[in-house]
Design a binder for these strands. Structure first.
Lengths: 351, 351
DNA sequence: CAGATAATCGAAAACGTTTGCAATAGGCCA
DNA sequence: TGGCCTATTGCAAACGTTTTCGATTATCTG
């Protein structure tokens, strides 16, 4: 139904190829005929058919974004950064929610490949196995991964680009902060064990305790959702009421923990301190406002598609690029120093 | 680079059209040759090129979703519902953030039309003017609008489908609830005046006061973002400290209000009550948990693309379909009855 | 003014599918 | 055996662009 290039060519009395050139402001065309063609095109309300164009040029001008769940504010923010960057480059973003489901994720990827997207940014739910890696490489489309573990990233076999927060450092400052506050009975409510970001945070977190000869905190892995964290925490409270601090794998997990604590009449931070990760906007309005580790989410998404576009442009060379996004502690009011902390503080500082 | 249909046809020793038919499990093809073709296709890792297919079939298998900002948890939830429904139908969703910017919104729509999406669901930032309506209609692609005002919806000239929450009823129960609690000095911190959902909520809210001969609450319109609400509220507090209740246009606005109140040492609900709209997940973990009006967000998004798909399937008939999503009050702890409420209550009841 | 050069334009192939129609091959009935 | 029917397959056009390669015209240059 919409006007085609042939229509405007006929209407303008020129050949179809001249019409094309006129509208794509290419060289080698008379300025008057161009004006004329453009005017006719406007009159006919002509809109170039991107799918036809994509067929011949081989580029689809669209990118895929596969994340676990857009309802997680972390991903929403990240998606926004990605979308802005894509739009600025004249691309569109197709949104895919994998729900941490490996099979669903693969289905989505196939889907995107069939659609001939120019590239994909995804936070892989699991470290990709050899077979999957091969399939992705074989597809020949640029891919940038989010939240891959530092182990994967440094593996020599690894051939994908990535952008990740400095989760190792994040886990480390989380541990040091809580230790510095004098906490001894700490538990880490983490996300999925298989998820690079969470495993990195957890291992760096634990490493600090090990290196300082301190008791190893309990770690409970699980889904990184509000509901899952809520359940985990409730269960936790059933078995252990001596906890003085929780390091949550991310803010949403922290929210779930807080809810469970509140319901059990446990005060934050008087009874237990809680430390999040991500610095989602809502951390400001919880009660108390959540102390957390800030991670630039918007920038992460933006950087991911920038790398992607870069890979797409210089088509041949596929040297993977890795970008690490800095993190830092944001102190609000959900953590408190417990008695005897001063002593503890000094001991750590000496090392 | 990826294998084409021609490749698998050649490799299988059949014609390109037979290969096509074999893969599309059409009728009129020998079961053995089909098996053979399928096997060859699998071996070559063949993936049908959707853009080529889209060119000939005329359908793109993709839908557009244009909302104001995915970072708003309301839209995130809605987007998730939309995406699930689209995926179930084998479509993909391209995400567009309009930022309440009419021009940006129109750019996105043009973009989507150029991409020949099968349909668009959008929450229009402003009531579409005649010209825009015409352009959309002329494009000939099914459109489902979110959050249109009830006035627009009932206009005889209106030719688009819509799915909206029952904002009129929502505004009404908000007013009655707050009045019932005995509040007299109420302000309504709304979203953009031009936005159907907010204008409906506001007008129904005010109508209750008018009809009961009560003083008209102050209404302040603005962006429906955390930051904007925060600013509005701070300003509000500078001029009027007698407020006893705030009805926020949505939960995110409520959060912004709460932040401003907290910063000014104003207690919720002891000093001022606050009532939200949407029942976003985070309302559970604010302090106090937010009393709000629930609106099924996921279902809204889902319903929108279902209507869209329905319109697409029965191509010709374009009778607009309207779906209204019910809302209801969820009482938590951010509103309190003020002294003298009983008297006030009786007075209302008498009228 | 002839020839050369540059500017502008048209013809046609190509991208990877789907699909209407024609062609072929058996099978069946008379 | 011959004609007809059906099941299967091949041929080719079409979808709406971009782009290469010639062709045509206009503009110089000497």
């Amino acid at each position: 139904m919409p006007a085609t290039l042939k229509d405007v060519a006929r209407e303008a009395g020129v050949n179809i190829s001249t019409a094309s050139r006129a509208l794509n402001n290419a060289f080698g065309i008379n300025v008057d005929t161009r004006k004329h063609v453009i005017k006719v095109a406007a009159r006919l309300n002509y809109r170039p058919n991107q799918v036809a164009r994509g067929l011949v040029t081989g580029r689809s001008n669209s990118l895929g974004l596969v994340i676990s769940d857009i309802r997680n504010p972390f991903f929403a923010e990240l998606a926004r950064g990605a979308e802005d960057a894509a739009f600025n480059a004249g691309c569109d973003l197709v949104l895919c929610n994998s729900d941490q489901n490996a099979e669903k994720q693969m289905r989505y990827v196939e889907f995107l490949l069939a659609k001939r997207v120019g590239g994909i940014v995804m936070n892989s739910v699991t470290p990709l196995d050899e077979d999957q890696q091969d399939r992705l490489r074989a597809a020949g489309v640029p891919i940038v991964l989010l939240n891959v573990s530092s182990a994967d990233r440094h593996s020599p076999a690894w051939r994908f680009s990535s952008v990740v927060a400095d989760n190792l450092y994040g886990g480390e400052i989380a541990a040091k902060y809580l230790i510095g506050l004098g906490h001894k009975n700490i538990v880490h409510v983490a996300g999925p064990r298989t998820h690079g970001a969470f495993s990195d945070r957890a291992s760096a977190f634990l490493k600090v305790f090990r290196e300082n000869g301190l008791a190893k905190p309990k770690v409970v892995f699980g889904e990184h959702t509000f509901g899952a964290a809520y359940q985990s925490t409730k269960q936790l409270l059933g078995t252990d009421r001596n906890i003085t601090a929780i390091f949550a794998g991310n803010d949403v997990i922290a929210f779930g923990c807080m809810r469970a604590l509140m319901e059990n009449g446990i005060r934050i931070p008087e009874d237990v301190s809680i430390l999040g990760f991500d610095n989602v906007e809502m951390t400001q309005i919880t009660s108390p406002p959540l102390t957390t580790i800030d991670q630039p989410k918007y920038e992460t998404g933006k950087a991911a598609v920038e790398i992607l576009l870069n890979m797409i442009s210089k088509d041949g060379v596929r040297e993977p690029e890795h970008r690490i996004i800095g993190v830092h502690l944001i102190e609000r009011q959900s953590c408190r120093k417990i008695s005897g902390a001063a002593v503890q503080d000094r001991r750590i500082a000496k090392r």
